[in-house]
Design a binder for these strands. Sequence first.
DNA 1: CTATAATTTGCACACGTGTGCAGTAAGGAG
DNA 2: CTCCTTACTGCACACGTGTGCAAATTATAG
Lengths: 334, 334
Amino acid sequence: MRVSIKDIAEAAGVSHSTVSRALSDSPLVKAETKARIRRLAQEMGYTPDAIARSLVTQRTQTIGIVVTTITDPFVAEVVQGIEDMAHEHGYSVILASSAAEPERELAAVEMLRAKRVDGVVVTSSRVGALYLAHLERIGVPVVLVNNHNQQSGRYTFSVSVDNQHGGHLATAHLIRRGHRRIAYVSGPANHSDDAGRLAGYRRALEEAGLPFEAALVVPGNGRLDGGERALYVLKDLDTPPTAVFCYNDMTAIGLLSAARRLGIQVPRELAVVGFDDIPLAAHVCPPLTTIAQPQREMGRLAMGMVFDLMTADEAGGGFSDVTVEGKLVVRETT
Amino acid sequence: MRVSIKDIAEAAGVSHSTVSRALSDSPLVKAETKARIRRLAQEMGYTPDAIARSLVTQRTQTIGIVVTTITDPFVAEVVQGIEDMAHEHGYSVILASSAAEPERELAAVEMLRAKRVDGVVVTSSRVGALYLAHLERIGVPVVLVNNHNQQSGRYTFSVSVDNQHGGHLATAHLIRRGHRRIAYVSGPANHSDDAGRLAGYRRALEEAGLPFEAALVVPGNGRLDGGERALYVLKDLDTPPTAVFCYNDMTAIGLLSAARRLGIQVPRELAVVGFDDIPLAAHVCPPLTTIAQPQREMGRLAMGMVFDLMTADEAGGGFSDVTVEGKLVVRETT
DNA sequence: CTATAATTTGCACACGTGTGCAGTAAGGAG
DNA sequence: CTCCTTACTGCACACGTGTGCAAATTATAG
């Protein structure tokens, strides 16, 4: 059976409040009494009850993270960054997958509210977009990662890559490589990142005096299969593109597989650029040119922002969304 | 400010115990009183306080998961399986990364104990091996995934792939393909999976009358860089192998990259087999032949076992470790 | 030795929810 | 109408920890 402060109090012949103070090193307790209680606690195998403590202190030392799925390599890197910094601050993390399903999305947010988490990080764009009001009802700092922050709340901010700049970098690189028919394979529907990347792609075309063709923008879903299907659409165009910029690395990797299956040589017949720079991007064939996001760092930035918001005063001043820039990493698909 | 049962009691003109009973649909409360209280709770935006409830019920509806790192694609799939089933049962999950560092390993286990989780799943082999006594002190069901279960506790079981069988499958496949000099690139030091896979590799060699050569067993670390380095060692042997079985897919993918860099043609000059069948295994170049583990299913099996153990009676009888078999998935690296 | 000040410890309450048991109210039978 | 039984609601306690304030103890000064 679990040992509680009461048990130690009985063994030590003092009150539970003296034990509580002794264990938290309060100056109100005599040093020798403290030492005696500490030794007893150790001998008796006492572990503080975080649940009871949370009820008293109104703090859970817990961060809630909402992801669409942890199996997305980009998300896993961001979550590892969050968890690393949470651990450094003595916090634990609750992971909730929203699976892009309304029932689970709402359940995830409501669960974090019920569990009284002290802060929330959201990497799921759907949750960031559709449940912002629910998130804010939790009443704790919320930081969105790669979500468009509608900024309706006092404690809601975001850490995002500059999607437009990244989209522009990717497309400009392809243009510099001599490409004139450049496709874009998009991400999940209504994904705020996607709109930015598309905008950057279009701006680079405009700047180069190249026409924007709607037929060259093909829907994907951010996953391997979406990239594969996109290539089948692109290759059947009257004038297929000679280059393609993909919404993310998973899309690009799926497209590379389809290219290999179709006997399309990359980059000679089709140049490919991804976005993210997940660890495997360097290990696909050919190694993928991509716009690298600092994934771990974005996780840490988001977690750091939550901690800063927790300790900020009532006014909550001095905070704003953080944008990080992607970097072009040229490998062998271009 | 958060609405509590007290607030609803005041608004409804009843005691807090009546509100508590009404919200939990107790038959002790008159139907019309229940309806009135329910409506008020809805209007007032009440969310039950899971912390207070846990203190009373001595249940947290929370599962703790200990992983080495969530960025391992295999682990991410298993965790997604766990979280999917946890959600189906109304449970949340706390994710703790042990990062193969003693300080974090102990901190992870102690944190789960303090948070009073109702069950624990461990995918980190080091934690399963080195901290089993600590895990059992939490006093809740513990299920190890791909850990050797020393079976010292009443509520500690495991869900594992049959490593020996898988190692045997992989090596036998290479032998059937005509290979006679087959290398093995191992996993992280003292990893229980590794020993099984090596044993299976050796048994297949013996059955084929092939000698075991220690020089053909090269240390890896389960990561991309370990696979890359391993190939540099293997290629410099007096008689390099014509095939290699890798501890896991990440090792194999790293090795494939090094092969490409060295101009070694796969599978013509070197056949490669991995283990796991992570989603990207089909998308590397060439697509990887591997021993597939049912990752999501293993996560669900582990989570299901925790729930079964929670509801089992005192005797805890009728449980045993679960072993699943890997399946050979032949792609283009062999 | 006594009085006052400082130090140490304990009492009681609280956090929010759940529940055993007692008390009150309502309904039914004689 | 009265008495007994059933239904409904509330009181008090509890879960484990933290803390304000009061009480007890110890130390110091005159």
